[in-house]
Write a protein that binds this DNA or RNA. Structure first.
Lengths: 193, 193
DNA sequence: GACCAGCCGGAATCTTGCTTCCGCTTGCGA
DNA sequence: TCGCAAGCGGAAGCAAGATTCCGGCTGGTC
């Protein structure tokens, strides 16, 4: 997925381990933030650090792989939303669902950040795709008269970026679950008046 | 300010150095993020690392001192806003001004974060004060009928937290200056309908 | 069932950055 | 002007964490 996977089929155990590593990384980073050690990820996956490095040349690459997975997921979700009949409801539901999914996730923001500047071609492509799809969705909502006319896909990105920060509860902001308020207010800000 | 300053008057050169360190820290952290090294801060201040540690027992303490300064500043600004005749305009102007001030500042979010959980008594007190003052300001705006009735000082904190993230341009989000859009939308979200 | 390329574990290594230490310098009161 | 407590610089000490290395294991093929 990241470096070479189409070349040789990968031995059965290797494929299994790769998956375990990815899963463990998602979990550990979500719980302890992106600064969690590789050692910790390895322990959680039940493998040695060496195994991680066999699959991902560097910590950054591992994070990049997570980012790609995440983006893929987002694109899929957004595409579904585009084909709903009521674009505004679909849009709103999409945001709530996406946020809910990452409740208390300490890493999403940083992972997404990596993806942006990491220069991973795959991540770039997915970004472009996400940008386009969400643009379409928002365009439909605007046409419907429910979303403010000047809203763009880029705005959405910016707002989601803030959401990620807010969701890393504990680190930046105090008080539990303020992100629901965040989303409420932001969504109202995107509504047509 | 942080540890002991009321005790002995501090020698003239020491006071001068302390100020230089604080100023350099603000600058360096803003430019390179909170992960910039102490070495770098020292070089920028034109002193040795040892000198920093004479004034601030730890990097965390140095950051804490910056946070306190920042909070003090915010409280003062907000107090001014409270005494304006038009609360909504004052509120809006306050947000824009605060944001403008930290254009491209990579450290504000993290510094503010430190202040929250750092447990610094002085920072806690200032937070409480800020919370109260902004609550007053917002209450006036709500009474005026210009701000949504359910808005709270805590909401403001959450939204500013997101803003901080958005402003760390380069790290998390791509595209230059999207924070103006962020603020525009958020402010509209806070408006009464 | 024997072979071997590919894979594994995890100790050792390298890097980076915070913090401490200590001999030298300097403001400033007598 | 003298004496010295307070302050200074920056090399050395340490800790944490990423990455490398290599001897030993194992799917999967002949």
């Amino acid at each position: 997925m990241t470096t070479e996977s189409q070349d040789r089929p990968l031995r059965a155990d290797a494929r299994r381990n790769r998956a375990k590593v990815l899963e463990a990384a998602r979990l550990v980073f979500a719980r302890h933030g992106i600064d969690a050690g590789m050692e910790e990820v390895a322990r959680h996956a039940g493998v040695g650090v060496g195994t991680i490095y066999r699959h991902f040349p560097t910590k950054e690459a591992l994070i990049g792989a997570l980012a790609v997975e995440h983006l893929r997921h987002l694109v899929a979700r957004t595409q579904e939303a585009v084909s709903a009949e009521d674009p505004w409801s679909a849009f709103e539901a999409l945001l709530w669902a996406a946020a809910e999914e990452h409740e208390g996730d300490l890493a999403m923001t940083e992972i997404a950040a990596q993806a942006f500047q990491g220069g991973l071609p795959e991540a770039d492509a997915l970004h472009a795709q996400l940008h386009e799809v969400s643009g379409t969705l928002m365009g439909r909502a605007i046409a419907q008269g429910t979303m403010r006319a000047d809203a763009t896909a880029q705005d959405l990105g910016v707002l989601m970026c803030g959401l990620g920060q807010v969701q890393s509860v504990g680190r930046p902001c105090p008080a539990p679950m303020p992100w629901r308020r965040y989303l409420t207010i932001v969504i109202d800000g995107l509504r047509a008046r």
